Simulated assay, not measured.
Amino acid sequence: MTSWNDVEIAEPEFAARVRRIFDAHKHKTIATLRADGSPRISGIEIEFVDGELTFGSMPGARKGADLLRDPRFALHSGSADPPEGAPGAWTGDAKVAGRARSTGDLAGEIPGQGFAADLTEVVRTGLNEAGDRLVVEFWRPGEPLRRVERI
């Protein structure tokens, strides 16, 4: 099991960049697997709580049923376009993948099922300073942070 805290310990600067991207927009997109194995995309909100990346599913929502049946997921941050005239200043977007671990029923005014992410991959995609190359940084448990530039 790899929590968000493990990413922060292993690669604190990278984790901070990724978290800023996730925190910049309220709405994210999660991919889950339907019973027949086909993908399902749903809107979702997340929180970072006590070193965990957490999220929930409302009662009766298909994404919650998907995750209880097959916990594999991919989560994508919101994203904005690169600034006009300064593409290198784009903060980029972030993705994580892993397995959702049920944390039980949500407490509060909105009922539902809670989940915490056991991470298998964390990715930040952006542009280099000149804005002419795509930069992909990715981290996996037990491996060093990798950076790839593409034209």
Rank of each mutant, 00 (worst) to 15 (best):
R133A: 02
A61V: 03
R20C: 08
L106W: 15
T29L: 15
I110V: 12
E8Q: 15
S42F: 07
P59R: 14
F22A: 01
K28H: 04
V136G: 03
D23K: 06
G112R: 04
I110K: 10
E52R: 13
R147F: 05
D93T: 01
T125F: 11
D50T: 06
E11D: 09
R40L: 12
R150I: 12
L68R: 06
E84G: 06
V7P: 10
G131M: 08
D93Q: 03
L33R: 11
L75C: 06
R147K: 05
I110H: 14
R150Y: 15
G112A: 03
E52G: 04
E149N: 04
I151T: 15
Q113E: 13
R69T: 06
H76Q: 12
V18D: 02
R40K: 10
N5T: 15
S57G: 08
R101A: 11
T91L: 15
E129H: 10
S57E: 03
F55S: 00
T120G: 14
E11K: 07
L75Q: 00
A74R: 05
P39I: 12
R150L: 15
A15W: 14
R99K: 11
V135M: 01
V136H: 06
G104I: 12
D93S: 03
I9D: 05
T120K: 05
G88V: 15
G78W: 07
F55L: 04
G142E: 06
P39T: 07
T32V: 04
R72M: 00
D70G: 14
P12K: 13
T91H: 10
T32I: 03
G78C: 12
R72S: 10
A116W: 09
H27S: 10
G64S: 13
I30D: 00
R72G: 02
R99L: 14
A10N: 14
V49T: 15
W90T: 03
E137T: 12
L106C: 06
R17H: 12
T54P: 09
R101K: 14
L33T: 07
D66A: 01
V96I: 12
I151F: 07
I44Q: 02
L106R: 08
F22N: 00
F73E: 02
T2M: 13
S57K: 06
I44Y: 08
A31V: 14
D118T: 06
A117N: 00
P59Q: 13
